[in-house]
Amino acid sequence: MFAFILRRLVQSAIVMLVVALVSFSLFRFVGDPVASMVGQETTLAEREALRESLGLNDPILVQFGRFVGRALQGDFGISYRLQQPVMELILSRLPATLELALVSGIVAFALGITLGVYTALNRRGWLSNFIMTASLIGVSLPTFLIGILLIWIFAVELQWLPSFGRGETVEVWGWKTGLLTPSGRASLVLPAITLGLYQMTLIMRLVRAEMLEVLRADYIKFARARGLTNRAVHFGHALKNTLVPVITITGLQLGSIIAFSIITETVFQWPGVGALFINSVQFVDVPVMAAYLMLIALVFVIINLTVDLLYYAVDPRLRVDRAAGH
């Protein structure tokens, strides 16, 4: 167990190092950083001095080492556009993105599993057919279109919910949350649905397919032959076996919810990290882009690690060390 975790940690570190290299090369290949920092009137000598003082004349490897060293301390430099430390910028925007991602992730997961199990158990019911057909919409409509449709229906026509922003926020232990105010919660509804709809339909279809597969398995037939109740067979035996592959996909989906909340954040003007990233791209704000890249990579690495550990907890066959004695 310990060796397994250690191995995964080393692998994660390597992945992060590679991503750091990509981030670092952004500075090199997206134009000359000095050119974007100084004005038109700066002399060549002044530029050279700046170049020297920033350490841009050092060998690449030394510069990369410095980049990684600073990144480890949470120092990604200063935003070209906003003239603020990048880390501060990201940290101030992160709660908005995380709240949005977690809420839509939890809703997508809970609804996806419930509907997936329902449609698998009542395969021929009209409600199942309706859900399956409706889910095609979730899979095939692009996120921005769903967002705009929701705004049109619920914000413009019905005027039930706000169409943009985060509403009022309160600060709890340095975390700016919108979950504690009515306007914050109301503002969260539409973006969360927009962001989670695709994931929900994906999880639902996956759970349904897995569940149908598992229900045909011999151990389910044997469980029925032993007279176990439908409830015990479906939720005790079948569902747990269904969840093993679902965990992987769901974990990765949570990662992409965070990473690709960009579109939703743009549509709803949600003040999160994704919106920050899009604005930075427009202004070629390289430090912010580099830091965003590293952040998203970190999120994926952490989620993958968690998924592996969950696997380990759910499926006893992976705990090989005990079996070795027999």
Partner: peptide, 21 residues
């Protein structure tokens, strides 16, 4: 009645048991 009055043994013991319990 299943299990209580009529028991059944299937062909393949490798797949008859739930691997997760």
């Amino acid at each position: 009645i299943r299990g209580k009055r009529i028991g059944m043994v299937f062909q393949d013991p490798l797949t008859s048991l739930n691997p997760l319990y």
